[in-house]
């Protein structure tokens, strides 16, 4: 009996040691993550919390809902939110229309050629946003290159209003946002096993049916991810609408800036930020459900 108990006891001791080792490993892992967690705390959680708190502080420094009331009472706030979402949807839509064929084209190229083309897609990332936006102004304005050339070529007689309006804003934003759509989309297209397309062809699908019934559905997760990135980035855009919108296309970010200038407290601007954040979260949440459904449909892919 005592002989049997000895190895048992030894085994029990090992169990404790092993458990301790496991815990130590977990702690070490947590230690690795802690700088990032701390950073997230400092640069994300605290400022957002502060923003939230400030939005409930009125002009006289006491707790108040006036910043939110102003937003719901005034038509201009509603229009600004409407414009913000309209531009974001429009930009995302056009990015999809341009970006999908582009990504498709890239995905069909051999690796080397595709990389070269990708670099040209990424090139805009290396120039400053402001420079690119002003470049569009030079191209699009009344006496800009596009109007002058088009008139010289006889395409139209009077300068067309391309800048200082919604058109110019969307053109500029599409240009800036396109890589954000193309990159994830290209990645997901590249990941589609060619055998799926072969299988579809073998089962009788011509190139068009093949695309609509197999390739497109399989590329949807990438398209969705890209479109979501573009949409969310659009919501907070400042420079492009400010420069290309002609002062008439006012997005939330611009209103935030002008509120900081105009009102004596930060609450008015914070409230706008909170509402925009909330709206974005609602959209992300809704979208995430779709993405998840899509993941399920996408299976192990």
């Amino acid at each position: 009996m005592s002989e049997a108990a000895l190895p048992m006891a030894a085994a029990a001791t090992h169990a404790d040691d092993l458990r301790r080792d496991a815990r130590r490993e977990q702690l070490a892992l947590f230690g690795l993550a802690s700088p990032a967690l701390l950073l997230v705390m400092v640069v994300l959680v605290i400022p957002v919390g502060w923003l939230f708190y400030l939005s409930f502080i009125g002009a006289d420094g006491s707790f108040s809902l006036e910043n939110y009331e102003r937003m719901f009472d005034s038509k201009s706030y509603r229009r600004i939110f409407w414009t913000t979402f309209e531009i974001s949807f429009l930009t995302t839509g056009i990015c999809i229309l341009i970006g999908y064929p582009l990504a498709y084209f890239l995905a069909q190229l051999p690796r080397r050629a595709a990389n070269l083309c990708l670099i040209t897609v990424l090139l805009p990332f290396w120039t400053s946003l402001l420079v690119r936006t002003y470049a569009w102004l030079v191209l699009l304005q009344r006496k800009g290159l596009i109007n002058e050339w088009a008139i010289d070529l006889g395409l139209w007689d009077e300068p067309v209003k391309l800048a200082h309006n919604m058109t110019g804003t969307v053109i500029g934003m599409v240009h800036i946002m396109l890589p954000f759509l193309v990159l994830p989309l290209y990645g997901s297209m590249k990941a589609i096993d060619r055998d799926y397309l072969r299988a579809a062809a073998n089962l009788g699908a011509g190139p068009v049916r093949n695309f609509w019934t197999v390739f497109l559905p399989l590329s949807l997760p990438g398209l969705f991810a890209g479109a979501l990135i573009v949409f969310v980035l659009c919501l907070g855009f400042y420079v492009t609408p400010a420069v290309l919108g002609g002062g008439k296309v006012i997005m939330v970010s611009m209103k935030i800036a002008s509120n900081i200038e105009l009102f004596v407290n930060w609450g008015a601007a914070s409230a706008l930020g909170v509402v925009l954040l909330a709206a974005t979260l609602v959209i992300l949440f809704t979208a995430a459900r779709f993405v998840k459904l899509d993941r399920l449909a996408g299976g192990g892919h």
Partner: peptide
């Protein structure tokens, strides 16, 4: 501040 809100209204 009042005029600014009204002006923005017109702009939008």
């Amino acid at each position: 501040t009042i005029a600014s809100e009204m002006y923005q209204e017109m702009l939008t």
